[in-house]
Design a protein around this nucleic acid. Structure first.
Lengths: 195, 195
DNA sequence: GTCTATACCTGGATAGAC
DNA sequence: GTCTATCCAGGTATAGAC
């Protein structure tokens, strides 16, 4: 992407998205004004429209990029052979990824209702693709006899909800280390599926 | 429905709260206008201020009433003697209660950031009081040797997140009956805590 | 108790100077 | 690329007629 000399767009663009991310996560999309975002970046409101056509697209891009990154990151990690190993890898990956990106996770879940129908459809497809990864692990474990779960779809939703909930309470440097958190959650999941 | 003249304050008040509940749940507090609420009720915007001093109080009352009802309803149900029985009762109560009130649950979780600091403190106290009920069950089961959980606080958050997640997917008349949903979740929780 | 009307503010977005 | 100025739609809340 060639730009004119003196252009700051390669710096300001990411800064706009970062400010929007933090403000949306803290106060909610509908409660945040373009003026607030501009103030956070240190530019005037009008300048934001050099980097996004409108506020809705700003939200959509944040959510889409987050979910795409999530899928890409998980895709690059699959190596375990057994269903139990794959489930353990999924759980620990999910926890790590979500602990590291609380703002992105929060927005991707909370702001679904503020998307236009077309944008919503795109995001839901990405979210579903990620959930399918877990469901397929559970199905493989079911067939192999490693897991004892009466309903794979319900278990998928239950496990993801349980793991994602880590963002509601975990604090870096708190009572529990990340490794301990990962191990405790994994043990609960492992037993929950009867492995 | 033809609206007659005369006093309706005893019926309009609840209708205002109900409309606000549904609209807040669907679109979010910040995205809903007093004019929309009024239109849903069938009155003019100005008339809303006969039933609430302002929009913030409307939100706060919805959240406080929901959490207070939750605590009261659970308090009236405790009868099981053993930790396992108490945990089963808690899980099934929680699922039933949350399946029946998806809008209230959604708001009580999603709109925390739109409360004033004073109101937030009140709501957080109520929420914490409910979480403590589960934590105490886990502690009793830990002492009695019925449960094998390495961290009661983490397990409390994990179980509540897992169960509350039912609202993100469950549909009345869908593939699974309520009884089946309750049983499957309960089995996952029971195994997760090593009972 | 509810209406109409309105005060007053802030929102998203654009135009044009520099 | 950013700023200032501005348009106009829509927000919360209030006043006063009925």
């Amino acid at each position: 992407m060639a730009r004119k000399t003196g252009s700051h767009s390669d710096i300001t663009g990411p800064r706009v998205r970062r400010a929007a991310l933090q403000l949306f996560a803290r106060h909610g999309y509908a409660a945040v004004s373009m003026r607030q975002i501009a103030a956070e970046v240190g530019v005037q409101a009008g300048a934001l429209y050099l980097y996004t056509p409108d506020k809705q697209t700003l939200l959509f891009d944040l959510m889409r990029d987050h979910l795409q990154d999530l899928l890409d990151a998980y895709g690059g990690e699959t190596s375990a052979q057994t269903p139990v190993g794959q489930l353990e890898a999924f759980c620990k990956f999910h926890l790590r990824y979500h602990i590291d990106r609380p703002d992105e996770v929060f927005i991707a879940y909370m702001e679904l209702r503020n998307l236009t129908p077309e944008n919503f459809a795109v995001i839901e497809k990405l979210r579903h693709a990620y959930e399918d990864q877990l469901e397929q692990i559970l199905e493989r474990g079911h067939k192999s006899g490693d897991f004892r779960v009466p309903d794979n779809k319900l278990a998928t939703m239950a496990i993801i909800a349980m793991l994602t909930g880590v963002d509601t309470w975990y604090q870096e440097g708190g009572r529990l280390t990340r490794e301990r958190v990962e191990r405790i959650y994994w043990n609960m999941v492992r037993r929950a599926v009867g492995a």
